[in-house]
Design a protein around this nucleic acid. Structure first.
Lengths: 343, 343
DNA sequence: TTGTACGCGTTATCAG
DNA sequence: CTGATAACGCGTACAA
């Protein structure tokens, strides 16, 4: 037998004013005398009143809520989420809370999900896509959002002329920096592990950075040193094994992301190849585990705190009708034990 | 200039039926002829209609949403979240999506937050607390929830006679198993690193498991081998240093959680103590990084997938008015390289 | 500055 | 099985 939730009418009665006055007083912005405001607040406290957000949202046509949609690669194992995304998720949560927005989250298996049309069903005022999964599905999604006048922003590759608003790390520069460093420290046969198809534009950018750094030093990329790999430790392991089995010489491995790099690390060890003795290994992301591998992984760090802040900040800017500049977050090479100078 | 969102009236007109019929047809549960249902669905698709959840929630007085509140230790650094919690978070997200519930998340700095009264303001039908922060604040919180008739469930120590509904790992058994193993493999002077005050009942339980296992073998715990530590790598590092500086002999370290264990691992290495050569180290949680430390960390694994499933499952059970049995998830010792037999 | 009256888009109730 | 009608609780013109 629980008490009925108090409504604004209840507190209006208690405070001896009209319901509309209660509403105004509580929102703290409209014209209402200091005196009645205090009376209302007192009554509200007394009855432990909380506005019903559903009624408020229905009336005001906004929700004060952002949705964070995580699209996972189809290749990802069901149970595990790329820790890099979890890290951004944490940062986005903090950033939106700081600005007074609630955050709704959902992990979507790449296929479009009718249920989860967060904005269309007015669950959220804006959407943050963490990765966009299949590109064509993404295009569908955003065109329907555009029609509905819903704001959204996507974490991913920042490519000129892309539809939608993107924020992402400077994948080209990051990997280029890593590869330049490898070249400067005497490496010549540098392999690249990762999927560079249209499905993974970020990895494709990283590969471009790799090519660019090689070209800048007058080196050319040997295509046999480029091995496909999905985004998981197991896939990275398998890719490194394939590289080893190909029999081609290499003195460094650049992975599209840390999970792949860690898998490669294990494969090399299992095959008796010393890291960094025989081969240097570089990752991308700087997930927590990267500091703990043996040897610790040299990698390109993505700034997840900045990522969360910028995603939320810029989404709100869009929601306020303002325009967005291209935003690219610099990525920074972090040197650890998995790389060393070659003679 | 964006088109107006279609309402159920619009689709009623298009389908040539009444608005109430539309509502019924779309909800798929009430009595409505196959024939009109198809007409309605067709019209809905054509206009790209989505129900307005705010209107729906206001009318039906339920939100189909769960809230996940993460209370962080005050000691936690601002930017970093314990990866173990992120792991549960991922699992809860999946579990609630599977059951058709949206998930609202929020990280709260221990202090009570007026704004974030998720259930009271009808943002969510039920609440999952991930850790409960300060215990007295927790008691306040739940008593107000009880009054309001809102269901909630808490991840934490499962202690008989506790107010509220808890789900958690078997902390006593888990650590006891680890310590028994240490004893069976020849360890005698086993240190415990962690805060066992009222603030951390889970760590306190783990410490109980430690004492229990020692007692079962007729050993007594030397209080000088119990060192306080907050929940972070840095704190674990500092705690291990203090232990070393105390000059007391020890051949194993049991940490209250993996972060602390990893910190201890680093401290020992920095001081030239070999792990597992001189000292064995055991953690608790099995976060991803634990597999990658050097040496890999022996630890007690908490099953985060089961945790997420059980939290959601049992919360829904409560929401359906059913009762709950105590639920404790077994924790399992995972042997890795940071422990070894002593002669 | 305050009160009145109405509508936001559904779901629930009650007839037919 | 279907249609009319009344809420759900709040925000906001408009009038006082």
């Amino acid at each position: 037998m629980r008490a009925k939730r108090p409504t604004s009418f209840d507190i209006a009665e208690l405070a001896g004013v009209s319901q509309s006055t209660v509403s105004r007083a509580l929102r703290h912005d409209s014209m209402v005398s200091e005196d009645t405001r205090l009376k209302v607040e007192q009554a509200a406290r007394q009855l432990n009143y909380k506005v019903d957000v559903n009624a408020r949202n229905l009336r005001s046509q906004r929700t004060n809520t952002l949705a964070l949609l995580l699209y996972e690669d189809p290749g990802t194992s069901e149970s595990l989420i790329n820790p890099f995304f979890l890290s951004i998720l944490g940062s986005v949560t903090r950033a939106s809370a700081k600005r007074g927005y609630d955050l709704l989250i959902s992990f979507q298996q790449s296929s479009a999900d009718w249920n989860a049309d967060y904005a269309a069903s007015k669950r959220a005022d804006g959407i943050i896509f963490l990765g966009y999964g299949d590109y064509t599905a993404y295009l569908d999604k955003i065109s329907s959002l555009d029609e509905a006048g819903i704001e959204y922003i996507t974490w991913g590759p920042v490519i000129p002329g892309q539809p939608g608003h993107f924020i992402g790390s400077d994948n080209v520069q990051g990997t280029a920096e890593a590869v330049s460093h490898l070249i400067a420290t005497g490496h010549r046969d540098i392999a690249f592990l990762g999927d560079i198809s249209e499905n993974c534009p970020e990895y494709r950018d990283r590969h471009q950075g790799y090519l660019k750094a090689l070209a800048a030093c007058g080196l050319s990329a040997d295509p046999v040193l480029r091995i496909d790999s999905q985004t998981s430790e197991e896939a990275g392991y398998a890719a490194a094994i394939r590289l080893l089995d190909s029999g081609h010489r290499f003195d460094a491995v650049v992975a599209a992301c840390d999970l792949v790099a860690i898998g490669a690390l294990h494969a090399l060890r299992d095959r008796g190849v010393s890291v960094p003795g025989d081969v240097s290994v570089v990752g991308f992301d700087d997930i927590q585990a990267a500091s703990y591998t043996n040897p610790p992984l040299t990698t390109v760090r993505q700034d997840t705190v900045a990522a969360g802040e910028l995603l939320v900040e810029n989404l709100l800017r869009l929601m306020n009708g303002r325009s967005l500049e291209q935003t690219i977050i610099p990525a920074r090479l972090v040197l650890r034990g998995s790389t060393r100078r070659r003679e």
